[in-house]
Design a binder for these strands. Sequence first.
DNA 1: GCGACAG
DNA 2: ATCTTGTCGC
Length: 229
Amino acid sequence: MITPTDAIALQEQLRSQVITTDMLPHPIRTIAGTDVEYDKDTNLIAGAVVVLDYETLSVLAVASHCMEVSFPYIPGLFSFREMPPLLEAYRQLSITPDLIICDGQGLAHQRRFGLACHFGVTLNVPVIGCGKTRLCGEYHDLGESRGSIAPLIAEDDQALIGNALRTQNSINPVFVSVGHKVSLGTATDIVLKMATQYRLPETTRLADHYARLALLDYKSAPNTPPASI
DNA sequence: GCGACAG
DNA sequence: ATCTTGTCGC
């Protein structure tokens, strides 16, 4: 497998390919969410991709893949751990979504190349990064109401690398950043739109649900393909 | 050296 | 990520 040193070199090389302007279909008709679930007492991980109707949020397609982890967890090299199951799940999808929301950072990363960038550049599709917690960057004066935004500024070069976004009143914000082929403003608007009822966008919540199911299914019957739509 | 550190 | 129910506070 790739070494951490080589992984960093790859990030440095691929980061120049990230597109930070909107290159999405208008109107958006379908949106996908991705998430990865880890098993507590084995090396298994399950990645899931769920495609929703952009307006109704109804589930149009689901795919998942279970496998053994092939890379350690190292902050900043997260994508090398989660990409393999996600790429395989994405490959199995019966529908190609207009864009994807990943559960992790995009440009809001020490080398400006988080999971959302890696996934987007690899597949050449629009991707939004939406993390539950901060990896790097600082923000101030975030309002308490749903829709409040505070710029996430990199500590090193003061670059704008994302937005802290409050998706529900007085609930901890999520961290939105560009993954690929989408602007920060558009990414922020879309994440807020998808977070209809809870802190996290429905895309992420559903992907988490299906990834959990995939892991349980795999453990109970390793040779049986997971249910998919 | 110490703390921080996506999942 | 995972361990994990009820409970404190707005």
